[in-house]
Design a protein around this nucleic acid. Structure first.
Lengths: 216, 216
DNA sequence: ACCTGAACACCGTTCAAGT
DNA sequence: ACCTGAACACCGTTCAAGT
C-alpha cells in the first residue's frame, strides 16, 4: 500500500484506540503490534506519529487526566468546596479508566494535563489565602489520596475467592470481602470518609498558623 | 550441567535477587532471562521454583510489605498513636523500594503479608472501639493515602527539567519543583500534613457516632 | 510524508533431555 | 528433583523500500 493520499492514522486516533484497549483488556494488552492491528495498519506505522510506545501511553494518561474538571478553581473563594468538587471529579476520571492508573499515578512527568491540574490547584489555594508552602503540600497530599484511592481500590485489590481468607490466619477479615457490591461501597465510603477527614484537618490548620500577632 | 546435587536456586534467593534488580534498575529490568543471569543460571530454571514471573513479583511485593511494623497493634489502646506509627512504617517500607510500588499498591491480592496487615489494622480498630463498618473504611482510607504518597511521590513524579515548566502555561508552578531536596521535603511535609489531617478527621468522627443515649 | 515488510535483539513460557 | 538448550509465539524498535 505504501503511503495513502490521506493518512490512515492520527495521534488522536491512536490514543483513542489505545485507551479503548487499555480499558477493555488492560495495560498489558497494549502492544504496538496489537494496537496497530486494531487500527488496521502494521506495527511500525505507529512510529510515524509517536517516538515510543511510552509516548503513546503518556498521551493516553494525559487524555484521562484532561477529563478532570478544574472549573471550580476559577475565581475560587471557598477552597474547601473547590477541593471537594475537584477530588470527586479527579477520582471519577481515574475510576473510569482504572487500568491506566498505575501508569498515571506515578506523577505528571511532563504531561500537560497533569501539570495544568497541579498549577490550578496550587494557584487556587494561594489565592484562597494559603501560604505558598502549604499550597504545595495540599496539592501533593490530595493527589496522594485520590490516586491512592483509585489505584488501591478495595474492589480490585482484594481477590474474590473465599480460600484466600483463611480465618485462622486472618481472624478479622471475614467473608464480607467477597461481595463486589460491598467492596464498591467500601471504596466509596473510604474515599468520602478520607476526603472529609483531610479537609477537616486542613480547616484546623488554616486558621491557626495564619493568625499573626497584632499590634506593636 | 543438569541437576546439581545441591540446588542452585531457592525461592528466597530468587526473590532477593529480583528485589535487588527492581531496586537498582527498575521493574522493567526484571525479565526471567536477566534475573536468571544474575543468579548464574539459565532462564527456564526459575520455573522450577515459581509458576510465573508474576508470582515472583508477588513474592517480592510480599517481602516489602512484610517489612512493615505491625507490633503497635498488639493490645493497642491508643488507636491514633498506632495508626500514626503504622503509617510511617508502611511508608518507609514502600519508599525504600519505590520501583515495586506501582505493582504492590494495586492491593494485597492473595499476598500473605498484605492480608496480615489488613487484618491487623482492622482488628485493632475494632478492639479500640470503632464500629466494624468504620474499621474497614479506616483500613482502606489509610492504605489509599500511604500507597498514594509512595507512588505519586513529588520527587519522582515531577521531571527535573526547567523546560517542562513553561511559566506561561503553568503560571504557578515556578522553578522550585526543580530542586530535588525541595521535592523530598514536599513529600515528607505532604505526608505528615495529610496524616495529621486524616487522624484529626477520624478523631472528630470517633466520639460523635458512638455516643449512646444514656438514662432510663 | 506515511505506510510496508524484513530484521534485530529481546520477551515469557513449555518441554524433552539430561543427571 | 532440578537444571539445560531448543523452540514457540510473542515483544519494541529500526530501517530501507515504496509511493
Amino acid at each position: 500500500m505504501a503511503r495513502p493520499r490521506k493518512p490512515l492514522l492520527s495521534r488522536a486516533g491512536i490514543v483513542a484506540a489505545a485507551l479503548a484497549l487499555v480499558d477493555t483488556e488492560g495495560l498489558a494488552a497494549v502492544s504496538t503490534r496489537r494496537l496497530a492491528a486494531e487500527l488496521g495498519v502494521s506495527g511500525p506505522s505507529l512510529y510515524n506519529h509517536f517516538h515510543t510506545k511510552d509516548e503513546i501511553l503518556d498521551a493516553v494518561a494525559d487524555t484521562v487526566v484532561g477529563e478532570v474538571d478544574l472549573s471550580m478553581f476559577e475565581g475560587c473563594t471557598d477552597w474547601r468546596a473547590a477541593l471537594t468538587a475537584w477530588a470527586r471529579s479527579y477520582r471519577a476520571a481515574l475510576t473510569a479508566h482504572p487500568n491506566i492508573v498505575p501508569f498515571l499515578a506515578q506523577g505528571p512527568g511532563r504531561r500537560p494535563a497533569g501539570l495544568r491540574m497541579a498549577d490550578a490547584v496550587f494557584g487556587a489555594m494561594v489565592e484562597a489565602g494559603w501560604p505558598v508552602a502549604d499550597a504545595t503540600l495540599i496539592g501533593a497530599m490530595m493527589r496522594y489520596f485520590v490516586a491512592g484511592s483509585a489505584l488501591g481500590s478495595f474492589a480490585r485489590g482484594f481477590v474474590g475467592d473465599p480460600a484466600a481468607y483463611d480465618p485462622s490466619a486472618y481472624p478479622h477479615l471475614g467473608q464480607a470481602h467477597l461481595l463486589p457490591e460491598h467492596q464498591q461501597r467500601v471504596d466509596e465510603g473510604a474515599f468520602e470518609m478520607g476526603l472529609t477527614a483531610l479537609l477537616d484537618g486542613l480547616a484546623v490548620r488554616f486558621v491557626t498558623p495564619t493568625r499573626v500577632p497584632e499590634g506593636d
